[in-house]
């Protein structure tokens, strides 16, 4: 598994892929993309890294455990739904900032929700793949 070419390529690719996944997430509301695909690409990037450098290394660069990724994804998604509740609106109502932010554009709770999806999907895919790989 530890071929030098693969290893080097992955090191170069990893930041690019992660960046691409965030790009997919952010543009999802307007163009093809979204939290799902973004999360899967992120997970794929790290899985490739694990393939090249080993599962332990992948855990190291992840910093957080995939399980925590799942938990935080759920937390983010849930809070995007609960925030409107606080203002007396139905669960998961879209609340939008009145102005556009640079880079992110129009920001509102649906985007937050998509971020939750992104985190969770990435965590899910990683948890499955890494625990299967660990068994090797």
């Amino acid at each position: 598994m530890s071929s030098i070419i693969l290893s080097t390529t992955i090191r170069l690719l990893l930041p690019l892929l992660l960046l691409f996944s965030v790009f997919l997430l952010l543009r999802g509301h307007n163009e093809p993309g979204g939290g799902f695909v973004g999360g899967l690409v992120a997970a794929a990037a790290i899985s490739l890294y694990a393939l090249a450098e080993g599962v332990a290394a992948a855990h190291r660069i992840l910093i957080v455990n995939p399980r925590q990724l799942i938990a935080s994804g759920l937390l983010v998604a849930l809070s995007s739904g609960v925030i409107p509740l606080m203002t007396g609106r139905p669960f998961q109502s879209g609340l939008w900032l009145p102005y556009s932010l640079p880079v992110l554009g129009h920001v509102g709770t649906p985007l937050l929700f998509d971020l939750g999806v992104y985190l969770l999907v990435a965590g899910m895919a990683l948890l499955i793949v890494l625990s299967l790989m660990e068994e090797e």
Binding site: G73, L74, L120, M124, A125, L127, I128, L132
Partner: peptide
């Protein structure tokens, strides 16, 4: 999330 926990 649950499926992932289940696999784990």
């Amino acid at each position: 999330a649950v499926a992932a926990l289940g696999v784990f």
